[in-house]
Structures are given as C-alpha cells and as structure tokens.
Amino acid sequence: MSALIQLKNVKKTYKRGKESITIFDGLNLTIEQGDFVAIMGPSGSGKTTLLNLLGGTDRSDSGEINFDGERIDGYNEGQLAAWRARSVGFIFQFYNLMPVLNAAQNVELPLMLTKLPASKRRANVETALKIVGLWDRAKHKPKELSGGQQQRVAIARAIVSDPKFLLCDEPTGDLDRTTANDILGTLQQLNQELGKTIVMVTHDPEAARFAKRTLHLDKGVFAEVTA
C-alpha cells in the first residue's frame, strides 16, 4: 500500500487575543490508501484542527502536507477549494444538507463544480443514492427524512464525485445506537468495497471499532496508536 496522506513536521498556532496557542508543533502522520482511521481525543486535543488541515479548509504554519503525491500546504484558497472539490468527500455531524433542496439535488451539489453534463450528473446522483439505499427518497426534502436517512444522503453527497478520501466529523454524533451502527456499516462498506480512504473524528469508542485503526490525539500529539 502507498501513502495517500502524509503530514511532515506540521506546525499550527492560533492567536487568541494576545495569546498564541500552539496546537501542533511538528506533527507527523501517514495514512495509507484504503485505510479507515478513527481519531479520538479529548476536547482541545487538536482533532478539529487536524480535520481542517486534512480537509484543506485551513492551512498549516509550516511543514508539509502531501495528498496522493500532491503537495497542498502551499495552495491558496482557490486552489484548495478546487482540490477539495475533486479529492475529498465531507460528512458532518449535523448532515448539513440544504433544506430547500431535495435529496437528489443535495447529492448533486458537488457535481455543480465539475464540467459534467446534466445527464451524467443525474446518472452519478442515482448511483450514489443507490449505494446508500435511498434512491426511492430522491425527491424528498431533508425535513421529510429521518436523521439516519439525512446522514445517508450526506454520505451520497460525499461520494458522488468519486473522491479517494472521505473526511467524517462525528458522523454518528447525532444518531441513536442502531442508526449509528447502520451508518458506520455503510462507511465500512465504502472502505472495503470501493476502497475509499476514510478519516473519522469521533468521541464514541463504539464508532471507532468500525475503523481499521484508531489514533488517540492528546495536546497535539498522537499519544497511542491502536492497531
């Protein structure tokens, strides 16, 4: 297996008033193609910052971030946006679906950033919704769907443009146990059957069990690595 993501000596500091808070001071991390990594850690350990760096929604102060052989740490906002659009699928805790759009339209959103014709977009939306088992709900608005169904639509949205990498921020944090396990099962399936590389931030040890390995982050350092 080859590395999909590599962080080398990454430093990140935030300014809060006059105070400067160091989140990462030389963080190293390698995630292989096809890996499914759970990241756990207490509040303030740097999970969200790591998620933002991995997702290209924030920039490091120094160090290297490589993605599939492409160095992204020097990218500007526009380049990062384009990179995110083609390389990363995002899954959020509260689904973040657009309330005025139906399921199919929500799933289609990332394809609006591509040059695909409408017919191809529709075909891709159908495939993605069928993968998550919600094609029959394509015309439903988010408020007409349960929490679990909404998260499935969000997963379809994340995979519709066929990115290699899925980034999940507490994807089951808002769901009951049974539904959560369903969603995690789907993620596992995407990892095993479609070869998606997944990084999932979670507080839930049960959820972490669905991953291939779990990293514990504490005060900006990976304290323990569980195979």
Binding site: G55, T57, E77, G78, A81, A82, R84, A85, R86, F90, F92, F94, N96, M98, P99, L109, P110, M112, L113, R157
Partner: peptide
C-alpha cells in the same frame, strides 16, 4: 451561515 460554510467546504467559491 452553516449552509454557506458547508458549500465553501465542498468547494463552492466565495
């Protein structure tokens, strides 16, 4: 705000 931020994360431009 959340919708705009979501779209921006997905790759939509400012």
């Amino acid at each position: 705000a959340a919708e705009i931020a979501t779209l921006r994360v997905i790759g939509f431009s400012g």
